[in-house]
Computed example of a mutant assay.
Amino acid sequence: MDSSETIEDIKEKISKTEGLVSDQYELYYEGKSLDTRRGASLKDYNLNGGSTIFLMKSNIDILKVFTLEMDSSETIEDIKEKISKTEGLVSDQYELYYEGKSLDTRRGASLKDYNLNDGSTIFLVPRLMEIFVKEKC
C-alpha cells in the first residue's frame, strides 16, 4: 500500500478481497477509528509498512438481549453453539465475557466453573480482524 492512499481506498480494497460491504465494518489503528469522511490518507495516521489495522464488523448487534436455557454442566462452547443456532452468528466471530473476563472455550470450562447461574448476564463482543499494512515495492 502507498502512504498516500486514503482510508476509503483501503476499505475498497478490503471489500473487494474479503467480500465485505464497506459500511458494515470499521477500521481501527491504535484504538482509534480511521475516518473515511475526511479523505485521510495512511500517512495522516502515521501508518507505514508493518502497521496493523484492525477491522471490526458492525453487523453484530451487541445491545441485543436474548435468553438461553442452559444447564450448569454445559460448557462455554455449548453456549456458543446455541447462540450460533438461535442468532445465526458464526462462533469464531465473537467472544463471550462475564464480569469483564473472557469465557475461554478451549479449556472445556462449564458454566459452573465461571459461577454462572440463572439470571447471569454474558456479553457477546465481536472479534477484531487484523489487517497488516505492507509498503508497495
Score class of each variant (00 low, 15 high):
residue 75 T to D: 12
residue 31 G to K: 08
residue 32 K to S: 10
residue 6 T to I: 00
residue 81 E to D: 15
residue 80 K to G: 06
residue 6 T to S: 06
residue 125 V to N: 07
residue 136 K to P: 12
residue 28 Y to F: 13
residue 117 N to T: 15
residue 93 Q to F: 00
residue 12 E to T: 00
residue 44 D to I: 03
residue 21 V to K: 05
residue 64 K to N: 09
residue 38 R to F: 11
residue 18 E to F: 07
residue 11 K to R: 09
residue 90 V to C: 10
residue 121 T to Y: 11
residue 70 M to R: 07
residue 77 E to L: 15
residue 48 N to L: 14
residue 45 Y to S: 03
residue 27 L to G: 07
residue 14 I to S: 04
residue 105 T to S: 04
residue 1 M to G: 08
residue 57 K to Q: 13
residue 75 T to I: 08
residue 79 I to D: 01
residue 35 D to F: 09
residue 13 K to E: 02
residue 74 E to L: 10
residue 91 S to T: 07
residue 40 A to L: 11
residue 119 G to F: 08
residue 18 E to S: 12
residue 60 I to Y: 04
residue 40 A to S: 13
residue 56 M to A: 12
residue 112 K to I: 13
residue 71 D to Y: 12
residue 11 K to L: 05
residue 59 N to G: 02
residue 23 D to W: 12
residue 58 S to C: 14
residue 137 C to R: 14
residue 7 I to N: 05
residue 127 R to I: 03
residue 46 N to L: 14
residue 81 E to S: 12
residue 102 S to D: 00
residue 118 D to T: 10
residue 62 I to G: 07
residue 128 L to S: 05
residue 1 M to I: 10
residue 37 R to G: 15
residue 28 Y to V: 11
residue 74 E to D: 08
residue 55 L to C: 05
residue 110 S to V: 07
residue 125 V to H: 03
residue 47 L to D: 08
residue 108 G to V: 00
residue 20 L to M: 07
residue 37 R to F: 14
residue 109 A to M: 11
residue 2 D to N: 09
residue 129 M to P: 15
residue 107 R to E: 07
residue 65 V to M: 14
residue 59 N to D: 12
residue 9 D to N: 06
residue 28 Y to N: 02
residue 80 K to W: 10
residue 30 E to P: 11
residue 76 I to H: 05
residue 123 F to W: 02
residue 92 D to E: 06
residue 76 I to K: 04
residue 84 S to G: 12
residue 6 T to Q: 04
residue 19 G to W: 02
residue 46 N to A: 13
residue 108 G to P: 06
residue 10 I to K: 00
residue 14 I to Q: 00
residue 7 I to H: 11
residue 37 R to Y: 14
residue 40 A to E: 10
residue 131 I to H: 01
residue 135 E to M: 15
residue 5 E to Q: 13
residue 8 E to M: 00
residue 39 G to T: 04
residue 113 D to A: 04
residue 123 F to K: 04
residue 132 F to N: 15
residue 32 K to Y: 13
residue 112 K to C: 13
residue 69 E to A: 14
residue 101 K to R: 05
residue 137 C to N: 15
residue 95 E to P: 00
